[in-house]
């Protein structure tokens, strides 16, 4: 599959720190990837890109609420362009801090930018930073980010965050997300069974063990775990004797490429 004609934009700002490895993952699959600072993003035409990634980090120090400052800055600078981008069904992926940004900018779980956040990624219930490998179950295999996987498939990907506890305002809100197929990944036990909040399998106390969600169209996705840290086999926490070829995080990027290929870029 030739992915050379696809272009990805990885945004960064002060405190972003996972942009490089995200670029490595995309380029490994042939996607042309540019890392652009928020300060020079005006010089870019977003609609030239097929994918925008908000990578992990501690944007602006996350001193207010994780992702809040960058989220508002994104709206102030890019709102109209992003709305167009989303409307055209182009892909946006937020990883960890990037997920928090998408929530704070109202792009998740909503369908456009600018809405008030209706969900939160709150402090972990363990009250500390958690760096550990978790098991994720694919709940929706029809999004561009999961189309190469099977529903129920279990992925191994690490998390690293202090604020990842997924919360909705009400049970009804959660039910709606479920109904819409917006829950993409859930934390599960190693055998794939529900974690039911059990620590450390659900590392942060997320409602309904939610690890990643998408918008209604499935084209904007945010997830707390870091697929770029589980891209190569040698990144895995345990090998038998020699590392496996690939990590599970790679599947998410492969799925993006397949989607772009199948849909001819859109």
């Amino acid at each position: 599959m030739n992915a050379n004609r696809f272009k990805a934009l990885v945004l960064r700002t002060g405190g972003t720190n996972c942009d490089l490895e995200t670029k490595v993952a995309l380029e490994e699959l042939g996607v042309k990837t540019e890392i652009v600072h928020m300060n020079s993003v005006e010089k870019k035409n977003l609609l030239e890109y097929h994918l925008i990634v908000f990578p992990g980090g501690f944007s602006y120090g996350d001193y207010v609420r994780a992702g809040a400052v960058w989220g508002k800055r994104v709206l102030a600078k890019l709102r109209l362009e992003l709305e167009k981008f989303i409307e055209e069904g182009r892909l946006i992926l937020g990883i960890c801090n990037g997920f928090q940004v998408l929530v704070e900018a109202g792009m998740l779980p909503g369908n456009g930018a600018g809405e008030t956040p209706s969900i939160a990624l709150a402090n972990n219930s363990s009250a500390k930073y958690e760096c550990r490998w978790v098991w994720l179950r694919v709940e929706n295999d029809e999004t561009p980010f999961t189309m190469t996987m099977r529903k129920g498939e279990v992925l191994r990907i690490p998390v690293g965050h202090a604020e990842g506890r997924f919360l909705t305002r009400s049970e009804e809100d959660l039910e709606e997300l479920k109904r819409n197929g917006q829950v993409v990944f859930r934390y599960v036990l190693p055998n794939g069974d529900d974690a039911n909040g059990l620590y450390p399998f659900n590392p942060n106390g997320s409602m309904y063990d939610v690890a990643g969600i998408c918008n209604k169209k499935g084209k904007v996705m945010g997830m707390m775990p870091h697929p770029e840290r589980a891209f190569f086999g040698w990144q895995l926490p345990e090998w038998d004797r020699r590392p496996p070829e690939k990590g599970d995080g790679r599947k998410i990027f492969e799925s993006i490429v397949k989607y772009l290929h199948d849909s001819n870029g859109l």
Binding site: N17, C18, L20, E21, A25, C131, R132, P158, G160, R229
Partner: peptide, 11 residues
């Protein structure tokens, strides 16, 4: 150790 991120940079 788990409160220190030892995976960032993916290396």
């Amino acid at each position: 150790v788990r409160t220190y991120d030892h995976e960032v940079r993916g290396c």
